[in-house]
Design a binder for these strands. Structure first.
Lengths: 149, 149
DNA sequence: AATATAATTGAATATTATTCAATTTTATTG
DNA sequence: CAATAAAATTGAATAATATTCAATTATATT
């Protein structure tokens, strides 16, 4: 057994997919060349970033999901992009946003379970510049990435 | 002009994409039939829900992004799935989660601008059973759907 | 150890994306 | 409002790709 599946999951998280032009052409009742032309245009304009898979995360050992509110120290607050770039590197972190209100950052995080989430908080999220965090754990996911589960 | 692009964007939000088997085979240095076999398995096991596009949302008139915390009335709290199913139907709502803590639901929402977000709050989010909401507006998105912007 | 099940693979085929040149539509400019 | 340029649409031909199938190998089960 070559253990291909975890490699596939990793690749599909960010890309390695492509549009189904023939299927779309049939659906919209337009020539496939017209569909092709319009898709390539969307890509060239930078409107489409990538094509990727959406998973049933419970089934791929990423059943734990949480939103993390982060408070930054005053010195980091002026240029939060250093920390956000660093956080973005980690594959467990689905999204990173700079937000308004009582907290500076919002993360969405997926790990296998609560133990691994704890490790992520200790090793990745709790670092210099981050002075306080608050975790909102997802008890049930109804929709993700525009896809109903 | 046939205005194909908005139709494509709508389709690509939920699917109409497919894996690039040849490309993956080259990358992993495995026969394409092996890759094919493993992908079909992931699909049959329900681990892969769909293949879709990720957009640069600012460029497709969905530049406004917010997280919405929702408090439910006590009678809805026992069976929140009715409301969450209803909310999930709306294309502006990227994700719906039932969460722990002071609030019951967390939404991630994308609209053209703040005005349209206001309309969404009035027409969709503010309804019977939802007694309080709090909006955390995204000032800057660094990573979304596992994809760095 | 014997058998059944699952995974891998190459060769053949079916399907699909892509290219290209021609045509039509839309936008621009004097 | 023509005249011209630019953008979008399309069919036919080709290139690339996914899929099927049967055979082989590896793994799991009893």
């Amino acid at each position: 057994m070559k253990d291909i599946k975890p490699k596939l999951i990793k690749l599909f998280k960010e890309g390695y997919c492509t549009p189904q032009i023939a299927k779309i052409a049939k659906m919209l009742k337009e020539p496939s060349t017209t569909i092709h032309y319009n898709i390539k245009k969307l890509e060239k304009e930078g409107k489409i970033k990538t094509y990727k898979a959406v998973f049933d995360y419970k089934k791929i050992d990423e059943g734990f999901c949480a939103f993390v509110l982060i408070s930054l120290s005053p010195d980091e607050y002026g240029d939060p992009e250093r920390i956000t770039k660093e956080l973005s590197k980690h594959p467990e972190i689905e999204s990173v946003d700079i937000i308004t209100g009582d907290w500076e950052l919002m993360l969405k995080v997926r790990t296998k379970n609560q133990d691994e989430y704890y490790n992520l908080v200790r090793n990745v999220i709790s670092r210099k510049g981050i002075i306080k965090i608050k975790t909102l754990t997802s008890l049930k996911q109804i929709k993700t990435e525009f896809v109903c589960l």
